[in-house]
Design a protein around this nucleic acid. Structure first.
Length: 137
DNA sequence: GCCAACGTTGGC
DNA sequence: GCCAACGTTGGC
C-alpha cells in the first residue's frame, strides 16, 4: 500500500467535478511530466491519495481518493499514461496549505518544498497519518 | 499580475 | 552533451 498526493487546479478539475462523475471515478489524464508519469506507473490498485487544489484562492487538501485502475497509455499519445482514481471522501473542511505548513511531521513533504511543481508526489505513511489526524470527524 | 523555480527545447 | 532561451507552475 502506497500513499500519494494528486494536484489539480479546481478551475480545471475540482473535487466536486470528481463527485459528479459516474461511480465517482475519473482517469487522471493530462499529466505531461515524466517523473509524475513514472509515479503513476508504480501505483497499485487501492493505493490511497490526497486530492489537492492548487493555483487557487485557498490551496490545500480537499479529499481522499484511491487508485482503481493501474496505469495505462493515453489514446492521444501512448508515451503518456494515467491511472483511474475514485473518490473515497470529500473532506468536511479543507486542510489548507497554510495549515499543512504548521504540522511538524510534514517538514520534509515534497509538496511543501520551495519551487516544487510535481503534480503527483509520493507521501510516507507517517505523513499520511499526520494529515489524516487533522480531518474533522 | 509578479516572479522564483523548474522542465523542455534546440542550436552548437 | 552543454547551456541559453523559453514556457509552465503555483504561491503570493
Amino acid at each position: 500500500m502506497n500513499y500519494w498526493l494528486f494536484k489539480s487546479e479546481p478551475s480545471c478539475f475540482s473535487i466536486d467535478d470528481l463527485a459528479k462523475k459516474p461511480n465517482h471515478i475519473t482517469p487522471w489524464d493530462g499529466v505531461r511530466n515524466y517523473q509524475a508519469r513514472n509515479f503513476m506507473r508504480s501505483m497499485e490498485i487501492n493505493d490511497l491519495g490526497f486530492f489537492y487544489h492548487s493555483s487557487c484562492a485557498v490551496p490545500g487538501i480537499v479529499g481522499i481518493i484511491k487508485v482503481v485502475k493501474k496505469s495505462y497509455p493515453e489514446e492521444s499519445d501512448p508515451r503518456w499514461e494515467h491511472v483511474d482514481v475514485q473518490l473515497v471522501q470529500k473532506l468536511p473542511e479543507i486542510i489548507t496549505l497554510e495549515k499543512l505548513r504548521t504540522i511538524p511531521e510534514l517538514h520534509n513533504m515534497i509538496i511543501l518544498r520551495k519551487g516544487n511543481r510535481l503534480s503527483i508526489t509520493p507521501i510516507t505513511a507517517h505523513e499520511w497519518e499526520s494529515i489524516h489526524d487533522r480531518i474533522r470527524h
